[in-house]
């Protein structure tokens, strides 16, 4: 018999590891990836591969040569960041822009704060927003979903339903008139519309959500609080004037609401720790999203909303505490 081990209790552990959690997220993203490849073809594959490879490479290089740590790319977090970054860009984005985005996501968004667990902002969103501000033309010329095609950067481009809606309302058209120009709700649900690679297919995103819930990777609180807030807020606006405001379902199915709510806002590192805090966070993301979409200059605001609420997370964690057992109330 070898020497016996002594350690403080507990002596048993759940088999969940960081790696398993990350790979579960990757599995949950596969349906989205499949639908994107179906609609956008080669472009989706090239963008995803570029983003994933460059994210992994930057993480490895930075850990090895700048931080002089043991590289930990096998934990899967850089893989998740890479796929999420790819999901957040159009499929005709030039490769070099994606590499720049990966560098910003991993280098600035994550490693500059000390790596996994220490970054205040979602790295993939940092990358995306950087690209959106730096390369607005490339980042907003979305390819038209045509079914699988081999075209990459020379794909036919068009506007997203959200963009059409924003422009139409701005030009004084009525919502019902605009609706005729864009895909039906059912088509949007299946993903037949222009947009960033991972945000088009609601059905695939919801499938991923169910998988994450079953595997207990995330709880329902963050996605549902965001979706409910957006539904209620846009619902009120729609009921006030259905001709100048789009219906809530339109808002949910277009743009990055579901992608953001299910995969981006739920990022462990950048979301609050307590359930109460999560509600504040989710409602905040919902409100800011709608404010940007309806009253702001950009047609879409999910990524800004998430980043803004990310910034509040440390504050939320400091002041919103879980209710303690047997807490003595002074009332």
């Amino acid at each position: 018999m070898s020497k016996i081990t002594i350690s403080p209790s507990p002596h048993v552990y759940e088999d969940t590891t960081v790696k398993r959690l990350m790979f579960d997220v990757v599995i949950a993203m596969l349906p989205v990836l499949a639908i994107s490849i179906y609609f956008f073809g080669m472009g989706a594959i090239i963008v995803t591969l570029t983003a994933v490879v460059s994210c992994l490479a930057f993480e490895w290089l930075i850990q090895k040569y700048m931080l002089k740590q043991e590289p930990s790319i096998t934990d899967g977090s850089a893989l998740v960041t890479g796929i999420l970054l790819a999901f957040n860009v159009p499929t005709n984005l030039p490769i070099w822009i994606i590499i720049v985005g990966s560098l910003v996501a991993i280098g600035v968004g994550k490693m500059s704060f000390g790596g996994l667990g220490n970054n205040p902002f979602n790295p993939a969103l940092v990358g995306r927003v950087f690209l959106l501000i730096s390369f607005p033309v490339q980042m907003t010329s979305w390819p038209v979903p045509t079914g699988f095609s081999n075209s990459y950067t020379d794909a036919v481009t068009g506007a997203t339903p959200l963009g059409v809606m924003k422009e139409g309302i701005g030009a004084g058209e009525s919502v019902s008139a605009i609706m005729d120009k864009i895909p039906s709700h059912m088509e949007m649900f299946y993903g037949h519309m222009g947009g960033s690679m991972g945000e088009i297919a609601a059905v695939a995103l919801l499938l991923g959500f169910v998988y994450l819930l079953i595997r207990k990777v995330i709880t329902w609180h963050i996605p549902i609080s965001i979706i409910a807030t957006i539904t209620i807020f846009t619902g009120i606006l729609w009921m006030i004037n259905p001709e100048s405001n789009a219906d809530p379902l339109f808002h949910l199915l277009t743009g990055g609401v579901l992608l953001g709510a299910i995969f981006m806002a739920t990022d462990y590192v950048t979301s609050p720790m307590s359930v109460k805090g999560i509600w504040i966070y989710g409602v905040g993301i919902g409100l800011i999203t709608v404010l940007i979409r309806v009253f702001g200059a950009y047609p879409e605001g999910v990524s800004f909303a998430i980043l803004i609420m990310n910034a509040f997370v440390p504050l939320i964690n400091m002041y919103i505490k879980p209710k303690r057992f047997g807490e003595v109330r002074n009332d």
């Binding site: 016996i4 081990t5 552990y13 590891t17 960081v18 790596g115 979301s271 720790m273 307590s274 303690r324």
Partner: peptide, 24 residues
């Protein structure tokens, strides 16, 4: 008998949700 390998805290909040005393 051996413990899991340690890695960075990813702030998943699982510890908060399982604490029966409502601590962090």
């Amino acid at each position: 008998s051996k413990r899991k390998k340690e890695s960075n805290c990813i702030r998943c909040a699982k510890c908060v949700s399982v604490c029966p005393q409502g601590l962090e």
